[in-house]
Simulated assay, not measured.
Amino acid sequence: MPWLLLAVVLATAPLAQARNDRRSDDSVAGVFDYYLLALSWSPTFCLTHADNEQCTGKGYGFVLHGLWPQYDRGGWPQFCKGAAPLTAAERAQGSNLYVSGQLLSHEWKKHGTCTGLGGAGYFSQADKALAVVKIPPALQPSTTYRSLEPKAIVDLFQRANPGLPSNAIAVRCNGPELAEVWVCLTKDLTFKACDNGVRSQCRSGEVRIPAVR
C-alpha cells in the first residue's frame, strides 16, 4: 500500500536527509543565529560504508560531520550563493578536519558557504568548535562493543564539558546504533540551547556503540 511504502522510506532515510524538511530556500550567507556541531560515530557509519576511505583501518571514533549554521526559529540556511571556490590551500586546511575529501566538499558547499566566513574562516571556525567540545574518556575509540542509554551519553558529555546544558546536546541514532552527537554553540562558540527542532532521536533503552574498525 502507498502509505506503507512511504512509512518505510521515511523510517530508513539517513539522518542528514531527515533534516531537509526544515531547510531554508532563501538562504543568505552570514544570516543565521548559531552553530550546530555534528559529531559522527564513525564505526556506525562504517557498518554500511565499509569501502569508504574513512573505514579502512583508521580506527576513528567520533569524527567531524560538520559545523552547520542554524536559525533560532528552526531550520537552517544551505547552499548559499556568492562564495568563492575553495583554493588548494583551503582544501588542504579542511582535509585536516574532515575524514574524506567528498565530505569536505559537501559540507563546504551546503553549510560553509552560508557562514559568510570564506573557506579559510569556515575551516578555522570548525577547528575551534572541535576544540571546545571535549569527547568523554568513556567514548574514546575502542575495540570493545558497548551499550549505553542516550541519557548516559549526554551525562558523559556534560561531565567532560562543564557548563554544557542538557538542552544544548542531542543524541542521534541509526536504528539501534549510536550515529551522532550534536552540540549547539553560539557564533562565539560557547554552549547554547538548541532550537526546538534539534533533539535526541533514539529508541528507548540502551543503544549500541559499535567498536572501531
Rank of each mutant, 00 (worst) to 15 (best):
Leu130Cys: 12
Ala11Glu: 15
Ser40Trp: 10
Arg199Cys: 04
Leu47Arg: 09
Leu67Ser: 08
Phe123Lys: 04
His65Leu: 05
Val28Pro: 01
Glu107His: 07
Pro210Ile: 08
Val132Phe: 09
Arg208Gly: 11
Gly197Met: 04
Leu64Lys: 01
Ala29Asp: 13
Gln201Asp: 08
Leu178Glu: 00
Arg91Phe: 05
Phe123Cys: 07
Thr186Cys: 00
Phe45Val: 00
Gly94Cys: 02
Ala83His: 06
Phe123Asp: 02
Thr186Tyr: 00
Val63Ser: 01
Asn167Val: 06
Leu178Phe: 13
Gly175Tyr: 11
Gln78Asp: 08
Gly94Ile: 03
Thr44Glu: 11
Ile169Tyr: 01
Asn167Arg: 14
Tyr34Lys: 03
Ser105Phe: 12
Gln54Trp: 06
Tyr35Ile: 12
Pro136His: 15
Ser105Leu: 13
Ser200Cys: 07
Gly61Trp: 05
Ser200Pro: 06
Glu107Gln: 09
Trp41Ser: 03
Leu103Glu: 00
Gly163Asp: 00
Leu130Pro: 06
Arg199Asp: 05
Val99Leu: 12
Arg23Gln: 14
Arg208Ile: 09
Gly118Arg: 01
Gly66His: 04
Cys184Asn: 02
Lys109Val: 14
Ala89Asp: 14
Tyr35Glu: 01
Thr44Val: 09
Ala83Tyr: 08
Cys46Leu: 08
Pro43Phe: 05
Asn196His: 15
Asp72Val: 09
Asp21Ala: 13
Ala131Tyr: 12
Val181His: 00
Gly119Met: 00
Gly61Val: 07
Ser27Ala: 15
Gly30Trp: 07
Ala16Ser: 13
Lys81Cys: 03
Ile169Phe: 02
Phe62Asp: 03
Ala129Gln: 13
Leu36Asp: 04
Cys202Arg: 02
Val183Ser: 04
Asp21Gly: 10
Ser100Pro: 01
Leu64Phe: 08
Cys194Asp: 04
Thr115Met: 03
Pro77Asn: 06
Arg203Met: 13
Trp68Asn: 02
Gly101Ala: 08
Arg23Val: 13
Glu180Asn: 02
Trp182Arg: 00
Asp188Pro: 04
Leu39Lys: 12
Arg172Leu: 12
Pro141Asp: 06
Trp68His: 09
Gly116Ala: 08
Phe45His: 14
Cys173His: 07
Pro14Phe: 01
His49Cys: 05
Tyr35Trp: 10
Leu10Val: 10
Arg22Ala: 12
Phe62Lys: 00
Ala126Lys: 02
Thr115Glu: 03
Lys128Glu: 06
Cys55Glu: 02
Ser166Ile: 09
Leu10Cys: 12
Met1Thr: 13
Leu4Glu: 14
Pro85Ala: 12
Ser40Glu: 15
Ser124Val: 07
Ser200Gln: 02
Arg73Glu: 15
Arg23Met: 13
Thr48Gly: 12
Leu148Met: 15
